[in-house]
Design a protein around this nucleic acid. Structure first.
Ligand SMILES: [Mn+2]
Ligand SMILES: [Mn+2]
Ligand SMILES: [Mn+2]
Ligand SMILES: [Mn+2]
Lengths: 218, 218
DNA sequence: TACTAAAGTTAGATCATCCTAACATCCATC
DNA sequence: GATGGATGTTAGGATGATCTAACTTTAGTA
């Protein structure tokens, strides 16, 4: 039985070494930054995780998850995203509030609870942020990969996921009435600064390049 | 912010010093037994809890909760019982399975979650075992106090709560089709061993004194 | 290639939570 | 009122998780 702390390290490693994100290798410092800890602390924990064969690395080398480490991390992520879905869909939390609570709920140890929750939610494929929820067999629904910024002028698309899940961005989207499933037509791209003019539900609005790089669409 | 461990100590103290149960005072050994720890361990923790003013006691004396300690313990109990209710009513767990999971869920820190869960469950007064759920204002619905063993012959009553929540007893009740709300008529009391003959939904059955002392009725 | 900054590791400390073994106090009984 | 067993406390130690400070290795750049 892993501690919450250990589970958090594995989940962080899964995130940092995810293929769909840029990086594929993670180091002590990356982990320390991501977890808000000091490199020395992370180094200690990595020794323990290596001992237990959840991670593998050579001294001074990059760290990767073993098979069993990855399985555990995926399961924690599954629980995290199921709980986020529950909080939004059932308890009517807004999508910027769910992460913090799911960080706690993801560590509850009960396979039965996870399966029953999944069933109760009708086996959702995506969480409130559009992130794919790993299935109980370990498979993952496909993840949207097209950035809004790469959509051509005059093209239409549908919001599939947010790349940035910070409350400040999510609240801004809320304010603009943009959510998962919202249809967007690209009217104009300004080459000067990468900003874009969009048509969202008959409203015309202009967003920054940073914004357009934070939305994934189909 | 209290640790899970600290919350468990306060909850154990609430249980051990509950007025409706027999005892009103708790000692180091009682706590140690209840929590499955050694007295020395408990002694350490009690010093910390006293320092933080959640409990009060004199050296070698009995321990009691302070106002703020009791408030916290009641809130943890509220969460425990709300989650048990959720697991039974929403996720269709059986009443002998919920306790273990609720032991984990009761420590999730989110007032909003607790309130939304309460609302979603339609503000239940009792958990699946018939135990009263403290309200958000701290008030408690009344607890049933009549033992089945004290019901007179030929009287009818309704099961209100179980005093013993061990899986083995709960499963036995399940097997007998006895649950909260079940109507029972006392047909006979055997003075030799305190056993009773009951009429439950047209079935006649005989139960031990221990059994009759483990059911609370209205 | 040599140097230096970034990245990673080690040593030594703290704090929470638990333990065993030994010691102190209390109280029910004689 | 003395005393032995129950109850409670202290001392000292282990482990997990964290830190700071100092050290080592790697790798990019001059
Ligand atoms: Mn999240
Ligand atoms: Mn999410
Ligand atoms: Mn319970
Ligand atoms: Mn209960």
């Amino acid at each position: 039985m892993l501690s919450n702390t250990e589970e958090n390290y594995l989940k962080a490693l899964l995130y940092l070494t995810a293929e769909d994100a840029g990086k594929k290798e993670a180091g002590t410092n990356d982990l320390a930054t991501h977890l808000g800890l000091k490199p020395a602390t992370v180094n200690d924990m990595l020794k323990r995780l290596k001992e237990k064969e959840y991670v593998s690395y050579k001294k001074y080398g990059k760290i990767s998850l073993t098979r069993s480490g990855k399985d555990i991390a995926m399961f924690v992520m599954r629980k995290h995203r199921l709980w986020e879905t529950f909080l939004c869909e059932v308890l009517e939390f807004s999508w910027d509030e769910v992460h913090e609570v799911a960080e706690q709920l993801e560590h509850i140890q009960s396979d039965k609870l996870t399966e029953r929750l999944d069933k109760f939610l009708n086996y959702p494929d995506y969480d409130p942020h559009g992130d794919p929820i790993p299935k109980s067999n370990g498979k993952m629904p496909p993840r949207a990969t097209t950035l809004l910024s790469s959509v051509a002028v005059q093209q239409s698309c549908t919001v599939a996921a947010v790349k940035d899940t910070s409350p400040v961005f999510l609240q801004y989207l809320e304010q603009l009435s943009i959510g998962i499933g919202t249809k967007i037509k690209v009217l104009e791209k300004i080459s000067f600064d990468g900003s874009m003019t969009l048509l969202v539900e008959k409203d015309k609005l202009t967003v920054s390049e940073k914004f357009a790089n934070s939305l994934l669409v189909d």
